[in-house]
């Protein structure tokens, strides 16, 4: 049994991220909105976000809360359909020499924890292609 880390990760054979898209201006949001932060319109539709994108910015985090494994690479990815996503970069060495701005990345998922009922939490990250 698996459960996504957050609602906007849709699990299945090909996991993907789902955004709420404003039916007026096309602005996309993860999580619910009462009205569009861009245009004020009140109607949204769920859309599948592109799995591929480019690395817009990153930081290699060494200092975090005690239970968080460090270092890890925090990133903002701009997907090929123009949506910004925050996540970790995965399957990459946390070394600035190995990470280049603008590099191509692709969505991937992994098990991030298991609860007492054996249920697995699935997280997502972006890996170099």
């Amino acid at each position: 049994m698996q459960i996504p880390l957050v609602y906007y990760l849709v699990l299945g054979d090909e996991p993907y991220l789902q955004a709420n898209e404003c039916t007026n201006c096309g602005a996309r949001f993860f999580g619910r909105r009462n009205a569009c932060a861009h245009c004020g319109h009140r109607e949204f539709k769920p859309v599948r976000v592109s799995d591929t994108g480019t690395l817009r910015t990153f930081s290699i985090v060494y200092r975090a809360a005690p239970t968080i494994p460090t270092p890890y690479v925090s990133a903002i990815v701009l997907t090929d359909d123009g949506t910004s996503v925050r996540s970790n970069l995965i399957n990459i060495e946390p070394d600035p020499a190995k990470i280049s701005l603008g590099m191509k990345v692709k969505l991937d998922t992994y098990v991030v924890g298991t609860d007492d009922d054996g249920q697995e939490a699935v997280a997502f990250g972006y890996a170099p292609t």
């Binding site: 459960i3 880390l5 925090s74």
Partner: peptide, 18 residues
Amino acid sequence: FGAVMPIDGILGTDTMPG
């Protein structure tokens, strides 16, 4: 976001230096 655990450090960073 319907998170099942805190997402800081998994889905990027919330920390100010980061």
